[in-house]
């Protein structure tokens, strides 16, 4: 007797439903053009840039300031969930982000970078926003792991924020559940690439084709 194997039924791909994407576009937080920068300073640098020969001064200053910025990105120690263990591993001696100038600092007022490592609950979101607001400009945010990117496996839970980009603007998303230290390290290197294109006037750089 011939036994017929059952035909496997493949469920439709999830990306055929665009509801989530539309929802993301609706609630996504964009970083404002020019965070908190001095208008007077911007006018002065613009004037200097358009002065004959002045562009040399501004571009050299940009390059120098960006080098300084990207070489001393201090992440605030902000661990939310199990991703924080991988974040600690990244800070520790084996992966050692301190060689990139990143010192995990326990005060938001001295930090430039927030690594959101873990699930953000609705109760936690105002505190996260508050800590982010305490950081001085210019500041950056890295969303680490599926939970911070989109809610992850807890997306449909009753208390989970569906992605930290609904609370704060995010510069680099690191995928994974949790991302290994190598992955986070790659994200931090990409962030340094972004910072290298930051302009003195306080405005964000034009999208970098290598990264964005």
């Amino acid at each position: 007797m011939e036994v017929k194997a059952p035909t496997p039924q493949i469920p439709p791909a999830v990306w055929t439903e665009f509801k989530d994407l539309q929802e993301w576009e609706k609630y996504h937080q964009e970083r404002p053009e020019g965070d908190k920068h001095s208008a007077v300073f911007e006018q002065a640098t613009e004037g200097l840039f358009h002065f004959p020969g002045g562009f040399i001064v501004t571009t050299v200053a940009d390059a120098f300031l960006n080098w300084a910025r990207k070489s001393s990105v201090w992440p605030v120690t902000f661990g939310l969930a199990c991703c924080a263990i991988e974040m600690m591993a990244t800070f520790a001696s084996r992966f050692d982000v301190e060689r990139l100038g990143m010192v995990p600092w326990a005060s938001p007022r001295h930090s430039d970078l927030m690594i959101v490592s873990g699930t953000v609950s609705i109760k936690m979101a105002p505190m996260l926003k508050r800590i982010y607001d305490q950081m001085p400009d210019p500041k950056w945010a890295v969303s680490m792991g599926s939970c911070a990117n989109s809610g992850g496996p807890f997306r449909h839970g009753y208390h989970v924020v569906k992605g930290v980009d609904r609370v704060i603007p995010v510069d680099v998303y690191v995928p994974g559940c949790p991302p290994p230290p190598e992955s986070l390290l790659n994200g931090l290197l990409l962030l340094q690439e972004q910072i290298a294109h930051f302009r003195t006037t306080g405005k964000r750089a034009t999208p970098n084709p290598k990264i964005d």
Partner: peptide
């Protein structure tokens, strides 16, 4: 009776 994905503005 609590629906899945009950909105909770402004975060979800």
């Amino acid at each position: 009776s609590y629906a899945v994905d009950t909105p909770h503005p402004p975060y979800r």
